[in-house]
């Protein structure tokens, strides 16, 4: 990090929040706007309230008592869910954490490296590489999943952790964002200064560039984490062994069985509640990183 200290640089400002819009300056209350937004919030929270109350009910109460009347069976339901097939639910949770955590970490690293190179180097073929990668943004992973299955089948890799982990490391959208962050937050002077001092390119990237891009990289990580956590089709296609399932595929299977065994419904509902809690918690903690301006290409974090 000596390069940053010695180089006479002026970091580009990535759009500061608007000064006039600070908390003190709110004008007189606009009740119409406030009420409409609160209605929107109510609509968005409704299913969350529902799952909170429904997961406290036992099987018969679910279909007999008023929807939003809570009961007292939450703990029983959790115990029952944990006991179901030797705790396969928690296995699904761990699998999901593994797919999303490791996948998003690797994906962020690859995106950061590629985006940095595309923003800060000039080399023949650069625009072609970027255009081809960018087309990948709009080739949805969902359409790739079925051919990916057949390719993995050729190598006997279906129904393994790899089959879900590997295809989700490459994220054209992550590379696109990383290029924007690198262009906006890593000054060329700093890179030049480090080069003059004899630092290798990978060292410049991993010690200087990544720390400057860090807020943006958190955003990429979150995007990819949520994308993998939410992905249903890829694991649904790739996996047959329910010990490898992520939570989405596991709960979908449980709901399917519920059609014939209604007692499983309470387990499905309790499972739904438990599975969204970690993501919601992460979301609330890290929400300041969710500021994405898709079109203008500036990201404030």
């Amino acid at each position: 990090m000596t390069a940053t200290a010695t180089a006479p640089v002026d970091l580009p400002r990535v759009a500061e929040p608007r000064p006039g819009k600070s908390r003190g300056d709110r004008g007189k209350p606009n009740w119409i706007a406030t009420v409409i937004l609160l209605l929107g919030a109510l609509y968005c929270l409704l299913p969350v309230f529902w799952v909170l109350t429904a997961s406290t009910k036992d099987g018969s109460e679910l279909f007999s008592t008023f929807t939003f009347a809570p009961s007292s069976h939450l703990w029983d339901n959790i115990v029952e869910l944990t006991a179901y097939r030797d705790g396969v639910f928690w296995r699904w949770m761990l699998n999901t954490a593994l797919y999303a955590g490791v996948g998003a970490l690797l994906s962020t690293y690859v995106s950061a490296l590629s985006g940095y190179v595309l923003a800060k180097f000039t080399f023949p073929g650069k625009s072609t590489v970027f255009s081809v990668l960018l087309m990948g943004v709009l080739v949805p992973g969902v359409i790739l999943a079925i051919p990916q299955y057949f390719l993995f089948a050729q190598f006997g890799l279906t129904n393994t952790y790899w089959s879900v982990l590997l295809p989700q490391i490459i994220s054209p959208y992550g590379i696109y964002l990383a290029r924007i962050y690198a262009a906006a937050s890593v000054p060329t002077d700093v890179i030049e200064a480090a080069r003059t001092e004899g630092a290798g390119e990978m060292r410049i990237f991993s010690t200087i560039a990544t720390s400057m891009m860090l807020p943006g990289l958190v955003t990429i990580f979150l995007f990819q984490f949520v994308a993998i956590w939410n992905n249903f089709l890829l694991p649904y296609i790739m996996l047959g062994d329910d010990g490898l399932f992520p939570i989405t595929v596991g709960l979908n299977g449980l709901l399917n069985q519920g059609a014939t065994v209604p007692a499983l419904y309470t387990l499905v509902i309790t499972g739904a509640l438990l599975s969204v809690l970690p993501l919601i918690a992460m979301f609330l903690l890290l929400q300041r990183f969710w500021r994405v301006d898709l079109a203008a290409g500036a990201v404030k974090a």
């Binding site: 709110r26 968005c44 429904a54 949520v226 992460m282």
Partner: peptide
């Protein structure tokens, strides 16, 4: 200007993004 509780509404409306499509379909399905 003048919108109150904007922080709460913003977070509440954004929250469903954290819920996987399978889970939200399951919740709405019920």
């Amino acid at each position: 200007r003048g919108t109150r509780a904007a922080g709460f509404s913003r977070v509440a409306i954004f929250l469903p993004y954290a819920v996987p499509a399978v889970i939200s379909s399951l919740l709405w399905g019920f």
